[in-house]
């Protein structure tokens, strides 16, 4: 009985692992196959054919797309953290009137359906001449990352012991100095977590990027992959699409594996507590 339970348990573990990993594994296998090879199914990699990886960068500005995504995501993370840490200090450490209501409003904004602001955001971006530009996307993505950055950092900020800042205030420090000299170093781990989540959100964002860009050179990675086509109508573009998918997924997987604990901490702080 005991042995059976153990076998059953390991079968379950294997099934979950296989289900989680197989699509990515199959994308990697497919990315090494091109032309007529794709007309048959292969479960194991046959040879290391990198022609799809070359084609992705050859046939479209995919390098530019990746650069665009990096620029947008990095700027969004930097802005969200800078604004988020100062706001979180006020929300987490100072009992001012209206705090609970404001925090609730910010939480509500983070649950907003993106499509609810789509036409208004379109008008805003166009009236500033930011249509089909990266600053336009940065502005739009900030709406997605800033609320939860504030929220998650606030929950982290609350958990720090109060003695820390009291000592600084007794020594005559102003609130601004306290934030910069005392809380900024202490918040570094939380900032890494939140920054990672914000990076992933911005890196994966699709609806705004699809709607607010027009030309292939200005697109970020998600719309670029979604709109990818073969070199002719008769060719299956799946080899190149899979190669592109693998390229943009590998850095994310690396991040997840390295920062696994931090990401989980951020998710639970944002959702279970938040």
């Amino acid at each position: 009985m005991k042995v059976l339970t153990r076998i059953g348990f390991w079968l379950l573990v294997a099934a979950v692992g296989l289900f989680a990993l197989f699509p990515f594994y199959y994308a990697v296998v497919s990315s090494f196959r091109s032309g007529a090879e794709l007309f048959s199914v292969a479960y194991l990699p046959e040879r290391l054919d990198l022609s799809n990886y070359v084609a992705v960068f050859d046939r479209q500005p995919f390098g530019q797309n990746i650069l665009n995504s990096v620029i947008v995501a990095a700027t969004v993370v930097a802005l969200s953290l800078a604004l988020g840490i100062t706001a979180a200090y006020a929300f987490g450490r100072i009992a001012f009137r209206g705090r609970a209501l404001l925090l609730m409003t910010i939480l509500a904004v983070s649950m907003f359906p993106q499509v609810a602001v789509l036409s208004g955001m379109f008008e805003l971006i166009r009236s500033f001449g930011l249509y089909n530009t990266l600053p336009g996307l940065i502005l739009a993505n900030l709406m997605l990352t800033l609320p939860f950055t504030i929220w998650v950092l606030t929950t982290f900020m609350r958990e720090l012991p109060k003695e820390i800042e009291e000592a600084a205030f007794v020594d005559g420090a102003t609130p601004w100095i306290v934030v910069r000299r005392v809380f900024l170093p202490l918040m570094a781990p939380a900032a890494v977590t939140t920054g990672l989540l914000a990076f992933i959100v911005s890196w994966n964002e699709f609806l705004f990027a699809l709607t607010f860009t027009l030309t292939n050179e200005r697109r970020t990675v998600p719309p670029a992959i979604a709109l990818m086509t073969g070199s002719s109508a008769y060719e299956l573009p799946w080899g190149t699409i899979m190669a592109a998918s693998v390229i943009v997924t590998l850095p994310i997987i690396a991040l997840v594996l390295v920062f696994q604990r931090k990401i989980v901490a951020g998710l639970t702080a944002g959702a279970v507590k938040g």
Binding site: A20, S245, V248, L255
Partner: peptide
Amino acid sequence: ILIPWAIPTVVSAKM
């Protein structure tokens, strides 16, 4: 199990 969550939705849809 974190990997499916981290893969961009567009990419997982394409896969």
